[in-house]
Design a protein around this nucleic acid. Structure first.
Lengths: 342, 342
DNA sequence: TAGGTTTGCTTAAACGTTTGAGTAGAGCAC
DNA sequence: GTGCTCTACTCAAACGTTTAAGCAAACCTA
């Protein structure tokens, strides 16, 4: 790799000190009363040698890397791909680069990623937390590292958070199914400690208003077989289930595959509803009714909130003003298809 | 953000010089004959203060960031999501972090990303190039920056490359369709200057062995309307087309949506084949026949080749040995479904 | 012409780390 | 007691940048 051009190289060529070059190239020539001719020469030489400042050296000096870390649960989730672009764009607008880390939903990986990113001096973190990540969040708070959680939060740990109101959306979804004439509505969710998923179950249960629930909980590591079993059971005669509501896109797709192979007619035999959107829905013969998260908005707001957080940290005059944590709950919109007998 | 613990902090606590702490924590205590008791104290203090080396400072000194840049065409492509995980894992195994950049298939963005990443001192780049990126590649070569292209290469620019043999796979796909009894096979590809896509058309045309081709070229910015038109035309009576082969996953999905809404029976009326895999195929009533790229292998090999490249650059004793560029062509495997009357 | 101000630059320290060179003191040979 | 070799450290420079402080020369004032 060829040596990069440094301020020193320019300084030598022009015959001035490194500092002067730095002043000029940072636009401080007025303030520093640099001679016009010299300034011109410095700029021309920088141009000619294709000078690009070394960000590493800059960061070392400024203690700011102009980088934000984004830790996602899994890179191929629709939530992830939808949000990454918004975050990158918004970050770039503000002069920041995004480093993406993938936790694969694993707490250990999350722990390691947080440290790797901190050691690389990211200025802040946007995190889609893994299950049981409370202590990691506490750590960030203790170290006063700017961060924003998205999608998933923890009721026992106050923090910045942007996501949707899972309870309300699940509640409204069930109301919608009832309005469509469904009488025996099942809900397929993971067996999980994730608060955001439990909120979805809570919304479902409350909206049933005393009806006997049909809640099926799927073990994540065995979700394919568990979903298959749940769908088979729910659609078997005698159960009387006339609608299945899936708590995530992965569950919905797996459920739909099983419904297809069981030759269940949607929506005639059973109505189908998904909490999340999925690309794959496009190829199903019936437009699938689902909710759509405002991914773009979540991403943009997360960057905004994080940058404010970073700003706050800087002007921190060691006055111990009590920390204000902010939560932003956005709304999902219903995309009404034809899978719930509309 | 709380100040991080530095070597100096440890040195002060223990009452030794910064150098000694550095030696000990880097495992050079034997070579440097550090006293046992002191070494123990240094390690204990580092542990107690939760010392984490500042990677930025390390990088500045070593000129190595232990980071590789990955530039992808679009984050939500299946190719991308499939490859990212393999690359991240393999990189981590070797002590490297991956920074992902998204060019959105735009040459300008690619140009900027390359520079941003170089300024952040990535040790090398893995690139899914945008269209007409020849000059960017030449630039990397001139600057002697280690890089590996994946998925897409340029016949006019020699470089390291890992991908599949697009010509051969397209050729074999058409042979397969012929073996399935298809007589009038259409190929839907982008209207593009991309070599890898043109190779697919070439494979298709050659395999027809003189039959009159039914090649339809889609304008990328208008692909939805163009695919709709092409599918409508190809399935209209009189054309006699009995198989449509789509050159990419996006084209295939869009094509399939249109075939569905035109109520074309697959494979009875028309056989359907896709060059690439897509998640969405799972929800189509007929298992879709397609080829599957060895994404994992491409990712792993790309990291391997890049690290060798980085290694070479280091021991570069300024002996001008001629650069050897390497190309690795892997095979796609046929995933035979039922969409081609098997 | 002495004193002060302005102009236009340079010096030096700092960020946190690495690493070759330097050195004080102990031990030993002769 | 002189010279040598170990041992166990410290010093200092360097990576590329920023920025406060310093300073010589020119210019101005009275």
């Amino acid at each position: 790799m060829k040596k990069n051009v440094s301020l020193k190289d320019i300084a030598n060529q022009v015959g001035v000190s490194v500092s002067l070059v730095s002043y000029v190239l940072n636009g401080h020539e007025k303030k520093m009363r640099v001679g016009e001719e010299i300034a011109r020469q410095i700029k021309a030489t920088a141009e000619r040698l294709h000078y690009r400042p070394n960000q590493i050296a800059k960061s070392l000096k400024s203690k700011k890397s102009q980088t934000i870390g984004l830790i996602v649960g899994e890179i191929h989730y629709r939530f992830t791909t939808g949000i990454v672009r918004a975050i990158e764009l918004e970050a770039k607008k503000n002069g920041y680069t995004v480093v993406i880390g993938n936790s694969h939903e694993d707490l250990g990986s999350l722990h390691e990623l947080i440290h790797v990113l901190i050691n690389r001096q990211v200025d802040g973190l946007i995190i889609v937390a893994a299950e049981n990540a409370e202590s990691e969040i506490e750590y960030l708070k203790k170290k006063e590292i700017p961060f924003v959680l998205i999608d998933r939060n923890f009721p026992s740990v106050e923090s910045n958070f942007i996501g949707i109101d899972n309870y309300r959306i699940a509640y409204r979804a069930v109301e919608y199914l009832i309005r469509q004439g469904c009488r025996r509505i099942a809900f397929v969710n993971y067996d999980t400690t994730f608060f955001h998923l439990k909120e979805r179950s809570r919304g479902y249960l409350e909206a049933l208003k005393g009806q006997e629930p049909l809640l099926r909980e799927i073990r994540k590591p065995f979700y394919e077989q568990d979903v298959a079993a749940a769908v088979r059971e729910l659609t078997s005669p005698g159960v009387g289930c006339d609608a299945i509501f899936f708590a995530t896109d992965t569950l919905a797709i797996t459920g739909l595959k099983n419904l297809i192979s069981l030759r269940v007619n949607i929506p005639e035999d059973v109505a189908f509803m998904s909490f999340d959107e999925a690309e794959a829905f496009a190829l199903f013969q019936v437009p699938v009714t689902h909710y759509r998260q405002p991914l773009e908005e979540i991403g943009v707001s997360a960057v905004g909130m994080l940058l404010e957080e970073i700003q706050d940290g800087k002007e921190d005059g060691r006055d111990v003003k009590p920390k204000k944590w902010r939560q932003l709950y956005l709304d999902s919109t219903l995309v009404a298809g034809k899978s719930c007998r509309e």
